Amino acid sequence: MSAPLPPAPAAAAQVFGDRLPLATRYVEHLATSGIERGLIGPREQERLWDRHVLNCAVLGEVVPDDANVVDVGSGAGLPGIPLALARPDLRIVLVEPLARRVEWLDEVLADLQLPISVERGRAEEKAVLRRWVGADVVTARAVGPLARLAGICLPLLRTGGAMLVLKGASASDEIGRDKAAVHALGGGDARIHTCGAGVVDPPSTVVEIPRIGVPRRNRRKERR
């Protein structure tokens, strides 16, 4: 017999409002087929709401209104799907390279009837860049170090847009370590946001890096 599905915490109603039933249905997908098909670890079932769904949804606190959002390396739809559930004003595309994950995402989105696009591919591929370049926001969670993420996320952004990356307690150390690399890739100074105080414990740590220019190597090409 499978373990009972985790109940929605009280804070979920605050975050999702009248979309709480959809958020609950999404958690059901994560807890069943998401685990069966290897998108979520079996030990995560009891922590799906706090560690995954709400942890991602509170990212909406720092996303501008009516933004075009690209979620890179989306996996099980994190943070893109919780963000869409909490912020229906956003236009979101999930970018994921693995076919089995894309198939699962398509099934879940069809069931939830959410107007989210799914793109199979890697964010750095030319075809993906052509389709989705000019985003207001690019999100990522547990994808890699900031320097690598900047190389993936910043080219998808319009100038003035921002990458918003969910990170852990070592975010400030990572910012210091990768600052020069991020600037070389056309990123501005990083800023740390603490999101979801009173909703998730601990609150989510979000690193914001704006796109302020083009990579230095591209500037050299332009001068030629």
Rank of each mutant, 00 (worst) to 15 (best):
D89Y: 06
R91N: 12
R91A: 14
L94V: 11
V95W: 05
E96D: 05
L98T: 12
A99L: 14
R101N: 06
V102T: 15
E103F: 13
L105E: 03
L105G: 04
L105D: 06
D106P: 00
E107W: 00
E107D: 13
L109H: 02
D111L: 10
L112T: 06
Q113N: 14
L114K: 11
V118W: 04
G121R: 08
R122H: 06
R122V: 04
A123H: 08
A123P: 11
E124G: 12
K126P: 01
A127T: 13
V128K: 02
L129P: 00
L129T: 01
R130I: 00
R131F: 00
G134I: 14
V137E: 03
A142I: 08
V143S: 08
G144F: 07
G144V: 10
P145V: 13
L146R: 09
R148V: 15
L149M: 13
L149C: 10
A150Y: 05
C153F: 02
M163R: 14
M163W: 09
A169N: 10
S172F: 00
E174M: 12
R177F: 05
G187I: 03
R191N: 01
R191M: 08
C195R: 03
A197T: 15
G198N: 03
P202K: 12
P203Q: 10
S204V: 09
I209Q: 01
P210S: 10
R211C: 14
